[in-house]
Nucleic acid binder design. Structure first.
Lengths: 255, 255
DNA sequence: GAGTGGTCTAGACCACGAT
DNA sequence: TCGTGGTCTAGACCACTCT
């Protein structure tokens, strides 16, 4: 049986594979090997050895190219690294560029307790700037959500976010969402790409009052366009207390 | 001749390969195929078809797995994309997170003419903060370079950069470099990873004078750690005119 | 039906590292 | 010397798309 055989006569030798069969999905051998290895090395320290290719060949009864295809995927996603002449090992964690986080997630990651107070949530007509940023027409319906954000009980920022109403049917009907990004994630629209512009300025009277600042204090201003699959989902402007908040950004390759 | 044969009897069928042989390097077949295809599709519009796998097989006289290995590499680097049942095509350009750019490169990319004036360039002993950021000991020798930056003739920022002297022998001997990142690149030390912290504040008297600002003006403050291969190469603090400069950052996956 | 990429086989020789 | 990953062969069947 030279080729093309899938999960048929070979099954007796594939006892480990049956456990990782996707319930309703296909049972590709390289996927089975991949998930077996993934489970096997999950949580191991970097440098811990993975099974050798030939060991997996005999364990699964597959060809070596199939095993290599499985390991290639794990190497590509940064879980394993190959060392010629020595073996395959758990790779050290890769450095990643700053991920797209919500205010809640960002504060939690910094060990602070976030809080959010809705100051306004209503339907509006898009102004020129918001329309251009959202790639819609001036006057189109947008959801405007204004929130005052706290961390560990201290005011951090005031954020005005604008959303394309067409993409979010019923957004204003239900209860006020506790998290914008969670709400968008539930609709499969959480931004995976953001374009931020960060500047500095002086707090306006309104901003100073909301943030509890003296007039004339320096603040950080952040504008964001959040996209999902080429679609602009979110446009926002934030004013942040510069004495309590800095934007941290990691950029570059993984070297 | 079933296997392991490299650039020997097979050469007659590999007329296209000889042109891409690395002068002093090995001549791996999958590399030859990869570079042939890379050259072939260079500059083509996204969606343009690449040669089919079987066409490359017959053209190079290699096995299909070898061709797939070559194409896999090009797919992984985002140059090609496969469409099952249709073929292999030039992929649309991938969106990339903001690259690590020098001031010069950043201004040029914005269509402005950059200029840089050295205010100080000398050896110093690292203070506590700089030492910690550079992962060296307090009192170790550091190069301190202070520059006033202009774009289109207007003052933009004042930057203080600190470099680990041990990594840059002779840095202060030659003429003043025209570009820090070019100089580092020449030594194989240009940062490929940066960690920025961006905040806001009010210009000090000194900063206001250098930047031509009234006292009490809001400015952007940026701190950077630049790394190459886990080594901290550069630590810097910049003060930027907020009326002329915003930090732009793109983040996220490539969807 | 012809062509494409996706998967898979059952071997092989090589360079390299550890013993 | 033995085991490892790196490379390579000469086929095969599959699901899919396009005509």
């Amino acid at each position: 049986m030279p080729n093309g055989v899938r999960g048929l006569l070979v099954l007796p030798t594939l006892t480990h594979v049956e456990n990782v069969l996707t319930p309703g999905g296909r049972a590709l051998k390289h996927e089975a090997v991949r998930e077996y290895v993934r489970d096997l090395v999950a949580g191991r320290h970097p440098g811990a050895p993975a099974p050798s290719e030939r060991e997996l060949v005999s364990r699964f009864g597959v060809a070596r190219m199939t095993v290599r295809q499985a390991l290639d995927a794990l190497v590509a996603e940064g879980l394993l690294e190959r060392v010629p002449g020595r073996g395959t090992f758990v790779a050290p964690p890769r450095r990643t560029a700053t991920p797209v986080l919500s205010f809640r997630e960002e504060m939690t990651a910094r060990g602070m307790v976030p809080e959010s107070q809705t100051l306004a949530l209503r339907l509006e007509q898009a102004g020129a700037g918001v329309a251009r940023a959202l790639s819609i027409s001036e006057g189109d319906a947008v959801v405007h959500w204004r929130r005052l954000r706290h961390a560990d009980g201290a005011a951090m920022s005031v954020e005005d976010v604008y959303l394309n109403e067409v993409l979010l049917p019923g957004f204003l009907q239900g209860p006020v969402p506790s998290s914008l990004y969670d709400e968008l994630a539930g609709r499969g629209l959480r931004p995976t790409w953001v374009e931020d512009a960060i500047g500095a300025g002086l707090a306006s009277d309104d901003e100073a009052r909301l943030l509890g600042l003296p007039v004339g204090t320096a603040v950080l201003r952040k504008q964001r366009r959040g996209l999902w699959q080429e679609k602009v989902i979110e446009v926002s402007r934030s004013v942040c207390r510069a004495d309590r908040y800095m934007v941290r950004v990691n950029l570059g390759g993984s070297d």
